[in-house]
Amino acid sequence: MSKGDPNVSTEGSESMSGPDASSGLSRRSFLLHTGGAASAAALLTVPVAESVAATAPNQAATPPAQVLGPGAIAATLLVNGKPQKVMMEPRDTLATVLRDKLGLTGTKIGCDRGGCGACTVWVAGEPTLSCLMLALDVAGLPGREPQAITTVEGLGKGVAMHPLQTAFVEKDALQCGYCTSGMLMSCAALYERAKAEGKLATISDGDVRAAIAGNLCRCGAYPHIVDATLSAAKGGAK
């Protein structure tokens, strides 16, 4: 996948590409154009990964320990199927890199301590807290492939929403919406796992509750979230 591939787009990279972003004036693009110049600039001046203070792995001898940072280094994140080189410091969490460097603001930061689940993304298909994950832990580095990250922006295919997203709309599975992307990632992981095992029809109320045990919704939309997931599972099982 090359840079500028018309088949690959991320909301963030478009909205950060410059003042001519064509998505119209949104709260997000307004903020980016007025206050986000620094992060946009960071995205555009990416040194190559080879400049990282690390040694390429040697087949014969054990290579030395890799030493990264403390300053920003370039590494590749594989987000929603698209490899992207990003400057990141060792202390940058996956949540902040997704939001602030890649503009993928669908992933929310709630407590920033692993207690609320708002920042849930998939790492290699498994729901994971991006606020307690160092971006460099999942990034590609010399001698190491990046792990596949899926965010809520990558859940559907283009304008086609994931069945869970459709069901969340139909069943009114949110009020303020802040927990929604994390809820979707947890529920969709349950859905995809069951689908792969041919067990969509057997997803139970208890399965959904267990899947969202780590996602808090302070509006209390839980019953509708469970309904939506069961409805999507029922639809998908047909």
Partner: peptide, 19 residues
């Protein structure tokens, strides 16, 4: 979070050396 160096050892010996 404070700024830090991230060291990725490849063996237990390297880990102990770093420690």
């Amino acid at each position: 979070m404070n700024s830090f160096t991230l060291t990725i050892p490849r063996t237990i010996k390297q880990t102990l050396d770093e420690l």
